[in-house]
Simulated assay, not measured.
Amino acid sequence: MGHAKNLTIIKLGGALLTNKSVPYTSNDAVIKEIAREIKECLASGLIEDLIIVHGVGSFGHPPVLEHKLHHGFKGTHQLIPLSQTQLIVNKFRFFLANELINVGIPVNLFHSSSIFTSEKMRISNFFLDSIKGFLSIGMVPLIGGDMLSDNKMGFCVGSGDQILTLLSKELDADQMIFATDVSGIHEADPKLNPNSPIINNLNIQDLEQVMTNMDNSKLKDASGAMKGKLQSLLVLKEQIKTGFEISIISMNSYGNLISLLKGDLKKFTKIAR
């Protein structure tokens, strides 16, 4: 069962949804605006079929680091901390789902740990029939970062970006939108150098060049997080060549997603063929 309409996958980054410098703090006002804006895009037909992938930001990172869960299974002393981490992240998931449902988006909350398994932190097996089924009747799957069962490490952190690229490939998505707290890929880290220009358009060759440049001295500011994102996008090279488009935008202010979809947004990065 393929998808009947145009499938958009939006990744709501952890830095956008949560305050990464304060553990267990969500950006409530931003989340409410994002929910409202996504609803407007669905209601006006700017988005047809939709999957939302979300980061967990300051709800996932602190307990994972505190209990060293990112190193994999070391002993039964980690099991209760693992349960507690799942619970903390689920509270955030429920909050996010609730905000989306409140504005009338029919989300269906999925847990990555029930869908994907991995081997040495790379997703190796998955079951997407349920996501396809709910998509086909008009629901919006909501899925986020999670601890995954790993057949070599016992368990591992499941990366939202890996999940994103896999869903795009397997479900033949038309476009992917990374919504974050910066307006795209800048020539240097905009948080350190606010005047750094945005790179508006990248083709796949440019993308590989930008990755190389991020290692050189001029761009040593470029954030590791952005580099990780770009690294995961290289997997989609063949799809980009056939017309799949990836946009990186800021959703810190209302209207950017609508402007992007209407073709009016000035500050963003598009990766296309």
Rank of each mutant, 00 (worst) to 15 (best):
L7Y: 04
I9H: 03
K11I: 05
L12C: 06
G13A: 04
L16Q: 02
N19Q: 10
V22Y: 12
P23L: 09
Y24F: 15
T25F: 10
D28H: 09
D28N: 10
K39T: 06
C41E: 09
C41R: 11
L42H: 03
I47T: 02
E48I: 02
I51Y: 05
V56L: 12
S58P: 03
H61C: 01
P62I: 10
V64Q: 01
L69F: 07
H71L: 15
F73V: 09
F73R: 14
H77P: 00
H77R: 11
I80C: 01
Q84F: 09
K91C: 02
F92T: 06
R93P: 00
L96E: 00
A97R: 10
L100S: 00
I105V: 14
I105W: 03
V107F: 02
H111N: 11
S114L: 14
S114W: 05
T117L: 07
S118K: 01
M121N: 12
N125V: 03
F126N: 03
K132E: 08
L135K: 06
I137D: 01
G138D: 05
G138W: 09
V140S: 04
L142Q: 03
I143T: 01
G144R: 00
S149W: 09
K152I: 13
K152Q: 13
V157N: 02
V157W: 04
I163A: 10
L167G: 04
L171V: 11
D172L: 15
Q175D: 09
I177R: 10
A179Q: 10
G184W: 11
G184V: 10
I185A: 12
H186C: 15
K191D: 13
N193E: 13
N201T: 12
I204P: 01
E208I: 12
A225H: 07
M226E: 06
M226C: 10
G228A: 10
V235Q: 13
E238R: 10
G243Y: 05
G243M: 05
F244A: 06
I246L: 04
I248G: 03
N252M: 15
S253E: 14
G255N: 02
N256F: 05
I258A: 06
L261V: 08
D264Q: 12
T269S: 14
A272E: 12
